[in-house]
């Protein structure tokens, strides 16, 4: 049947839904830059971006509150259903994860300032650089998947989260080795530990965002499910054909 259902009868409703989506994307863009700058501050030893990150964290918080208010307005005024309802709920959940990512970026910035002066220590630099780049890609991958309703793109992000988790465990083992060899390094190592932990958490939040893509597109709530479960539930049609 040839029918076009892309538009609501209410033009304002279209506009409102479009607005939360694009505001979420803008917030995502800012958060992604925050993370990239934080990683840069750690790996380059140049701590000058750190102050900027800490200052911009307020913007991130404000955006979360504003977008969440827009979502509430839509719920109250339009009582959205089906894909519209899923979209509003998903945006509201995603901005929460973006805000948490912002927090983690800020934590990294604080640690960057703390270790900045001291002669760093190549502790886990490789891992930080690698994991940092990875989670930045995950954030943009998840937001991209959201914009394009791309379930496979979202699942790909989840796959990367597993890699980041593995990297994280390996880096912890490396750190412990340093600490055992030279107890004077413990102070420094603990800072690095917190940074690694923050990066790992950012990966988890990017994963959460991807799960919302699957929710929006297929209606399946795949929070707390394994990668295989997720693939099955995101593509119920494929499963049914077997």
């Amino acid at each position: 049947m040839e029918m076009n259902f892309s538009q609501h009868i209410s033009g304002q409703f279209n506009t409102d839904l479009e607005a939360i989506r694009s505001h979420m994307m803008a917030m995502g863009g800012l958060v992604e830059r925050q993370v990239a700058n934080a990683i840069e501050a750690i790996t380059s030893g140049d701590t000058s971006p750190a102050d900027e990150i800490i200052r911009r964290e307020d913007d991130v918080d404000r955006m979360e509150v504003a977008i969440d208010r827009e979502c509430t307005q839509i719920l109250v005024r339009r009582q959205p259903a089906a894909s519209d309802l899923r979209m509003v709920l998903a945006v509201s959940r995603v901005v929460r994860d973006l805000e948490r990512i912002g927090d983690e970026a800020q934590k990294i910035a604080f640690h960057a300032l703390e270790i900045g002066g001291s002669a760093n220590s190549g502790f886990c630099q490789q891992a930080i650089r690698y994991m940092g780049a990875e989670v930045c890609k995950m954030i943009s991958g998840a937001l991209d998947a959201f914009a394009r309703h791309d379930v496979d793109g979202a699942i790909d992000v989840v796959r990367h989260d597993k890699l980041v988790d593995q990297q994280y465990s390996a880096a912890l083992r490396e750190l412990i080795t340093y600490m055992m060899e030279d107890p004077r390094s413990i102070g420094q190592a603990i800072n690095i530990l917190w940074i690694l932990r923050a990066i790992e958490r950012i990966g988890d939040h990017a994963r959460n965002i991807s799960e919302q893509v699957i929710y929006v597109v297929s209606g399946a709530d795949v929070r707390h499910s394994s990668l295989t479960e997720m693939e099955e539930r995101a593509h119920p049609d494929n499963a049914a054909e077997d």
Partner: peptide, 19 residues
Amino acid sequence: VFTTPQHSLTEAYITGRFG
């Protein structure tokens, strides 16, 4: 029906997309 309708016509109706 109200979260994940199966048919595109149902979806279009309950989301207010009939013009």
